[in-house]
Design a protein around this nucleic acid. Structure first.
Lengths: 220, 220
DNA sequence: GCGTGTGAACTGGTTCACAGCG
DNA sequence: CGCTGTGAACCAGTTCACACGC
């Protein structure tokens, strides 16, 4: 069975909730309960989970850890993968220090920057390289994910270089849209300004009395 | 005409592109060109833009600044609104220093934290308050947006407090899903771990040979 | 002829309703 | 009797194809 993109998103969100709830009291989770927690109708979740197959006893709800591991397995959330940080300025450093990154399944194995001085002064528990070695390091170490933290005006070029080096995914923290479809490379934008504007838009339309169907604005 | 959520997202993305391109050479933008830049088929964009009405001459393309201002007006991107930061730790400080925030149309007028010491030592060009004054300040100043930067375990309670105080939108930077549908409050999650897992999932499915229709993984 | 605008066809994701198991 | 699993109905958004203005 193929999963649709919305379904994948909900499953990833479910994964966190389920993993948080798989703690001490071995409760059982109903689709209604989960739906409430996530802001999604229960039948949608039932469909989503049904796609995984085999989880959930008909009649009682879902077992948290069964659900958790089913999602993780189906989506490969535990697959160990290598990541690198491109751009070690303020933003890159912040990302680099994010404690919970380990939970993602990725391990950061390299950092790149154009500024040689910065490379020498920075303290990191992974190797740092000048950018001109980027392609080679990525290939040699089979790095799959790049955390793109360069200044906005360098984003396009960096992305091209990364794709040329065979990267598989890019988390784009720069405020620059990397839309140019490059087949096979997964790109996700984490864009503060964009989200601000989304809120603004939704508020505006809502204040004008536009329906704005379903409260799922936090999703999608 | 009502706009759908996917349409709104594309228009917001378009807005940035158009505003970047409205510079020196007064060119004209075709839907094909824009589509390529955004990774979206041209006819989809044509539909989206057509919703705005009146932009675009049949035959030649779109005028960048006309497009820009049409989007801004329709979505209220230039509407001045007030925002506050809730939680002034490492994350909150980073958000607070984000230079380009001004472009969003919001101005930050207040910051809140439980830690009184922190309030006294922090340097900001807006007023800082202890949390117990939060509801009152939000109401008095008619603050519409909250940038939620508290620790994960405080996220739920803070969100409740904000909603109780009449906030209209929340940008949730905490790794905690705020799904619980609260009618009328726009919530958007900016979640690093979630995005990492999304990439992981998409790579996994893709490597298994699942179709993963359309390269629009960066959208939605 | 290039490129927008748009009504009509289509696709696929969501919603519904009910069968079935604990 | 509560709650999951699922096939059928529904609907929104995307895709297509063509008419029209420059």
């Amino acid at each position: 069975m193929d999963l649709s993109l919305p379904t994948i998103k909900r499953l990833v969100a479910l994964y966190r909730i389920a993993s948080e709830l798989q703690g001490s009291p071995p409760q059982t989770l109903s689709s209604a309960k989960l739906g409430q927690l996530l802001g999604v109708p229960s039948h949608t979740l039932r469909k989503d989970i049904a796609n995984l197959g085999g989880v959930g006893t008909t009649g009682s709800g879902y077992n948290p850890q069964a659900l958790c591991s089913a999602i993780a397995q189906r989506l490969g959330l535990h697959t160990p993968r290598k990541a690198c940080i491109v751009g070690l300025g303020r933003l890159g450093s912040a990302v680099m220090h994010y404690e919970r990154f380990g939970e993602s399944g990725y391990s950061i194995v390299a950092g790149f920057d154009t500024n040689i001085n910065r490379l020498e002064t920075l303290r990191a528990d992974f190797a740092l390289y000048p950018v001109y070695e980027m392609a080679e390091v990525i290939r040699r170490q089979a790095i799959e994910l790049a955390l793109l933290c360069v200044p906005a005006d360098a984003a396009g070029a960096s992305a091209q270089a990364l794709i040329g080096a065979g990267i598989r995914g890019i988390l784009n923290f720069t405020p620059h849209n990397l839309g140019g479809g490059h087949q096979g490379v997964v790109i996700r934008n984490i864009d503060f300004l964009f989200e601000c504007r989304m809120v603004s838009s939704l508020l505006t339309l809502q204040q004008q009395g536009s329906p704005l169907k379903s409260a799922d604005t936090s999703f999608v």
